[in-house]
Nucleic acid binder design. Structure first.
Lengths: 351, 351
DNA sequence: TTGTACGCGTTATCAT
DNA sequence: ATGATAACGCGTACAA
């Protein structure tokens, strides 16, 4: 067998095939430079020995690891899992291994993940959100590691990014509801700390409202975990305050919206007659729910694909646009309508 | 700056700190063997140069890559994403990087992923399901790469595994419904091809039924994609056949069950009075739905953790149990009850 | 405590 | 077309 019963190396294959290690390497990496007979022999010997070139040696010699990295908040949320899946598909076409790290919404953990990835020699990096530790992006620049920000497209920052403008998306939702005639709003959103996307969304709602001289009452603004349970609890809280109550609830994602919808049903509120509710993401359930949820659809796989494509282009020294938009599509379904004036008349008018 | 403006290496740090590369290495890996002053100087120089040891060089010298791998069908399904998250958490405590590959339910793709991982020098491997290409496990054995099968615990095979017996789980569900008095069943399940878990589940239902002299009619057995839509369509199909109709529908997971539930509501069927429905997994929505779904809860994060723990133990040469059970917990909620005899009487009795 | 020197497995360069 | 040889970056006996 092979030396010392360890993993075979190129030398073992070379010896068994009666060639040099250089030829073994060539037989795999530039088959044209090797005579057909020798190539066949090398390949067959390699197969019988079970030799696979060791990536570590290869990385050293080539000065190229063929590794990229992505850092997301968590794998538990479908949107990020899909972005990763999209990246993985695109990278694998270029034989690049994708390292996946989770920050758990903590910039410190995120930075630690990136450090580990740099040690592994990542050639490029994708990360969700711009809310990183101080000097984070400088560190990447210093190492000349191309990076891209996922799931955000903040026009005010210079970072290459693939995604959409969260602020714009939420002004769009708000304008739609305003256009339907709503003038008293509630919001159920995810935590803002270290989350530039969520922050931008709330600002988007606020800015759109203030254009119309409206605002978002603290009493009707609930911020917490993105669970069905929190969506439920928030809606309950909003409607357990004395009237008037909001006629429209804007949610940070579909999960929160579904929670709100379930609680609304339990409270005997008719959607969309008594209450309009909007979500975000367009998860599978959104379309199937009763009533089907009005939401914005985001193509997360595409975001991942495009991010990988941009990084690959830059690795190849190609010019690539640094701000790539993947616009969310408004999907109006059954949870939004003009406010029911009959019901509102029962409420005392706001002072 | 550093030589040729490239990534700094240990030699650059050594030169700048006025020591040898051996001391640089020791300052990081065995700090006790280095005098405090020298250590401090080395660390500060390394920090200012931004030096991080290159994993490829390290892997070669140590003959240890600190890489493990996991192959799952898809990241798009929460259960697998959670298993990966659990593994990642456990491995990261041992500074092991986890490589993630997706097979898309295709053994060929799975094998390709594993090959890529072997090239990267994975020290250990986890894989969902035993349904692999011929010689797959032999290949791992030949390389002495410890592996573990996730999400299955087939007592008939020798493979180390962490999970549960899918056959047993589904006989349990079936027995419960039989105990409630049901005697006409339907099933909505995921595809069986290359999926030993799904196959075992169907067999579990069949075996439990045949103990009672019952069977599963092809007309009432629907197999397809694990989507809400397929759950809906299957229920519709089942109830659009001439009576009698099943009083209990066993679903392959919660998503299918939710689809069935939604369609049942649309058809005017009362759950659980007219129809009992069971799911599997206990996703968040299961408890919140109206009525809340009876299902089996699986702790997928724990499965991931335990799998990683077993692999780590084996890497350290420790004896570790090879079959680790993570039993699903039966959660009876609102979608199961005794069959409504009144309704059944309206149906002509089965011949 | 510190330095010297070799090997880890592969590829690229330069001969032949 | 093929071979010899020198990197690639690091860790670790061994020597001092």
């Amino acid at each position: 067998m092979t030396r010392k019963d360890r993993r075979p190396r190129a030398q073992d294959v070379a010896a068994a095939a009666g060639v040099s290690t250089a030829t073994v390497s060539r037989a795999f990496n530039s088959p044209d430079q090797v005579s057909p007979e020798v190539r066949a022999r090398v390949l067959s010997v390699a197969a019988s020995l079970g030799w696979i070139p060791h990536a570590a040696g290869s990385a050293l010699a080539r000065r190229y690891t063929a590794i990229a990295g992505v850092v997301i908040p968590t794998l538990g949320q479908e949107i990020f899992a899909l972005q990763v899946a999209g990246m993985q598909a695109a990278f694998s076409e270029h034989d690049i291994t994708l390292l996946i790290g989770c920050s758990n919404y903590d910039p410190e953990q995120g930075a630690a993940q990136v450090k580990a990835m740099l040690a592994r020699g990542v050639e490029a990096l994708a990360i969700v959100g711009e809310n990183q530790e101080a000097g984070f992006f400088d560190m990447l620049d210093a190492r000349r590691v191309p990076y891209v920000v996922l799931y955000g497209l903040n026009p005010d920052t210079p970072h290459p990014s693939v995604g959409f403008d969260n602020h714009e998306a939420y002004t769009r939702i708000t304008h739609h509801l305003l256009g339907l005639g709503h003038d008293l709003f509630g919001a159920i959103l995810q935590p803002m700390v270290d989350n530039d996307r969520a922050t931008a969304r709330l600002a988007g709602v606020r800015d759109a409202l203030s254009e119309h001289g409206l605002g978002l009452k603290p009493l009707f603004t609930h911020i917490g975990p993105t669970t069905i349970e929190f969506g439920r609890a928030s809606l309950r809280a909003i409607f357990s305050s004395p009237p008037p109550h909001p006629t429209a609830i804007i949610c940070g994602n579909d999960t929160l919206a579904l929670g709100a919808l379930m609680e609304a049903k339990q409270l005997g509120l008719r959607v969309p007659d008594d209450l309009s509710v909007t979500g975000f993401d367009d998860i599978e359930l959104a379309a199937e729910f009763d009533p089907p949820l009005t939401t914005l659809r985001v193509d997360n796989i595409e975001i991942g694909r495009l991010a990988a494509a941009q990084l690959i282009a830059r690795l190849n020294g190609e010019e690539a646009p640094v701000k790539v938009a993947v616009e969310p599509v408004f999907v109006e379904r059954g949870t939004t309508a003009a406010p029911n004036r009959n019901r509102r008349r029962l409420d005392p008018p706001p002072r």
